[in-house]
Design a binder for these strands. Structure first.
Lengths: 292, 292
DNA sequence: GAAGCATCATAAGATCATCTTATGATGCGA
DNA sequence: TCGCATCATAAGATGATCTTATGATGCTTC
């Protein structure tokens, strides 16, 4: 038997919501109806589509069905758009994942322009999570650091984010009076985004060839991380694009020539949707800022 | 109200079949049910989707719905394929338009290779018609002479078909003993595909700078047109690729250096279907034969 | 560990969309 | 003019799917 569109859309809703009951609410149905739809779907394709845990976990078959459902949603939005270009009640919603630094520095301007006919859901997540969100179908596209496309996705390079180690002149005078050496770097406090943020460690390794454990402060917001550094909380890695926005003289590079390049890529589902196309080209346009 | 997938698929079936009754048969329904589905659809989107003539003619809104339906069909096939790679009962059907010369000379070999997991419907049509079939959603892809993509389609260049004016040595001796001039060209009979085939006229214009009206024979089949020329029915424009297959000496060029280049493009719907992707790459591979 | 809550499954009947049957109108060709 | 093909509509039949009701399970909280 064939998978019914309704069934696929239901499974997609369950995946985004995480539970049957939440999906039922979203679909304006009783939980029982949702349960029955899932059962019917599983009977139709002859195997389970998800594991009943919280939140639900899709089986491979379930993932295929959800992909179908998501594409159907977009197709449907496209059709509505063609039929009633005026009525904007049901403009499609595109969900994308952008890491915090990109969102803060370059991603937003282009996206704003694309938002005429699209409703955006921007998820601010780090690398690991962003690929997971793509895989689960929660997001349609993502800015990632890995260029190899997920199965079912296409990937295109966006450019390179260049990070530099910076601090205030006062901070440098206090901690690096004897120069930026293994000794001083081991004691000077560093400000990072969170405990997964390894940019600083990569710099330290390149600089000293050993693993250092300086004091660390975590500031999990890009703008505020910049502020923290400007206030002398520590030194840290900031993108060139963010540095360009600071008043000159407020921060200084630890080692002027040193920098870390993080290549960024746009990954999106291989599906046809004018809405998604809009967003993709908007991101690409924004990423012009990443070109040297 | 939203367009239901069933309704879109129904309209698509009506379009391919031409009448409600034929569509009903294909869908294993009564004509009445089909009629009611169409009515429900028209009420849902608030305007007619087709004109009730034979065969039916879609309105712009109807065309949008049919496109949606066709894409849904492909999506659905893809899903089935993913869920049951073994059961090949419902391999997707891809419809493409290829002009006669391309079909005869270069298009088929690659397509044959792609046919493992795809059922092909090849429509042999000339330029005007092929774009129309694309637009109406009857075909998923087409080999066209125009490179500017239709709305909703993507286009990629395939290469160039080079045509040369040829005839038999005997024909040349009889008609062109005084050389290939405006005078001789005006009287020597020419063989063309049909009355829309303007390759010969383009050659004549380029050769003489005036419009000539030589006697014309129409042979609406590529292979047979070649045979006709070999039998001395007239001179005509044949693709290099076709000439390569003829025994040497059977035909000779009217003006050895003269040739007409027809650039070819592959246009297809911008949608994600592994089946369509297969066909597209097969066509592109075949088109290697068009590279100089 | 008992109570409370959230979650999913199942049975059974209600509801509603959609199909079939039956009939009629229209247009076209023989 | 008849016959045929086509599409529309009314009305009842059908059947899928929903809601209601209830129960099982597992996790949290006190």
């Amino acid at each position: 038997m064939r998978v019914q569109p309704e069934q696929a859309l239901t499974l997609a809703a369950i995946t985004t919501e995480g539970t049957f009951d939440a999906a039922a609410q979203r679909l304006h149905l009783t939980p029982s109806a949702v349960s029955q739809r899932v059962r019917a779907l599983e009977i139709a394709i002859g195997r389970p589509v998800l594991r009943r845990v919280r939140p639900v976990e899709l089986t491979p078959a379930g993932e295929a069905v959800v992909r179908f459902g998501r594409q159907l949603e977009l197709l449907s939005s496209d059709l509505s758009d063609q039929l009633e270009p005026s009525e904007n009640g049901s403009t499609p919603r595109i969900t994308l994942v952008v890491n915090s630094d990109s969102l803060h520095t370059w991603a937003l301007p282009g996206l704003v322009k694309a938002a005429d006919h699209v409703q955006l859901t921007i998820l601010r997540e780090d690398q690991d999570h962003s690929l997971e969100l793509l895989r689960r179908g929660t997001a349609h596209g993502a800015v990632t650091a890995t260029g190899t496309p997920m199965p079912g996705c296409s990937s295109r390079p966006l450019g390179v984010m260049r990070y530099r180690p910076v601090c205030t002149p006062a901070f440098a005078a206090k901690w690096f009076a004897d120069g930026v050496t293994g000794t001083t770097l081991a004691t000077a406090p560093v400000v990072t985004y969170d405990d997964k943020d390894d940019l600083q460690d990569r710099y330290l390794r390149r600089q000293c060839r050993t693993t250092l454990q300086p004091p660390r402060h975590y500031v999990p917001a890009t703008h505020e991380l910049g502020q923290a550094i400007q206030l002398g909380l520590g030194w840290g890695m900031l993108p060139d694009l963010q540095l360009a926005g600071l008043d000159s003289g407020t921060v200084t590079a630890l080692t002027p020539s040193a920098h870390l390049d993080v290549p960024l890529h746009w990954q999106q589902w291989r599906l046809t949707s004018t809405a998604l196309d809009h967003v993709a080209s908007a991101i690409t346009e924004s990423a012009q800022a990443l070109q040297p």
